[in-house]
Amino acid sequence: MAGYLGNRSEMVVHHLAVMKEECNIYGVKKGDRHYFVPDMLDQAKREGFTPCKHCIQN
């Protein structure tokens, strides 16, 4: 299982191991899902994604 999932329509990245109901992961359309290589938060940030305020503590 991937550790992070990006939502391209909102440019938000979620941490799948600690996701919350407020993240609405299941509402992300298949075409908007983005996985990162390497699967790391730093990579998501380099690609312009903002960490989710519900599942990623800064």
Rank of each mutant, 00 (worst) to 15 (best):
residue 5 L to K: 06
residue 47 E to S: 06
residue 16 L to M: 12
residue 17 A to I: 06
residue 28 V to Q: 04
residue 57 Q to L: 14
residue 52 C to T: 01
residue 6 G to A: 05
residue 57 Q to Y: 12
residue 50 T to C: 00
residue 2 A to W: 08
residue 19 M to C: 13
residue 52 C to Q: 00
residue 44 A to Y: 06
residue 8 R to I: 07
residue 57 Q to H: 14
residue 45 K to R: 15
residue 27 G to L: 15
residue 10 E to S: 14
residue 16 L to E: 01
residue 37 V to Y: 11
residue 39 D to M: 06
residue 5 L to V: 07
residue 24 N to A: 13
residue 33 R to Q: 14
residue 39 D to E: 04
residue 41 L to T: 08
residue 40 M to L: 13
residue 21 E to S: 11
residue 34 H to K: 14
residue 39 D to S: 07
residue 32 D to E: 15
residue 23 C to S: 03
residue 33 R to F: 05
residue 31 G to I: 14
residue 5 L to Q: 01
residue 24 N to L: 14
residue 38 P to L: 09
residue 3 G to W: 08
residue 22 E to Y: 00
residue 3 G to M: 08
residue 16 L to C: 05
residue 25 I to M: 09
residue 46 R to I: 11
residue 23 C to G: 06
residue 6 G to Q: 02
residue 35 Y to V: 00
residue 29 K to Y: 09
residue 27 G to H: 11
residue 9 S to E: 15
residue 15 H to K: 10
residue 50 T to P: 00
residue 26 Y to E: 11
residue 15 H to T: 03
residue 45 K to P: 00
residue 9 S to G: 08
residue 1 M to G: 09
residue 18 V to Q: 09
residue 44 A to D: 02
residue 55 C to Y: 03
residue 41 L to H: 09
residue 37 V to C: 06
residue 19 M to Q: 12
residue 44 A to W: 04
residue 24 N to V: 11
residue 36 F to P: 01
residue 12 V to M: 02
residue 35 Y to A: 00
residue 28 V to N: 02
residue 48 G to V: 05
residue 53 K to Y: 06
residue 22 E to S: 05
residue 12 V to K: 02
residue 1 M to W: 04
residue 24 N to E: 10
residue 11 M to A: 11
residue 19 M to H: 09
residue 8 R to F: 07
residue 53 K to V: 12
residue 21 E to R: 15
residue 48 G to S: 09
residue 11 M to N: 12
residue 35 Y to E: 09
residue 14 H to D: 01
residue 32 D to V: 00
residue 4 Y to V: 05
residue 8 R to M: 13
residue 21 E to V: 11
residue 8 R to C: 04
residue 56 I to Y: 09
residue 11 M to R: 13
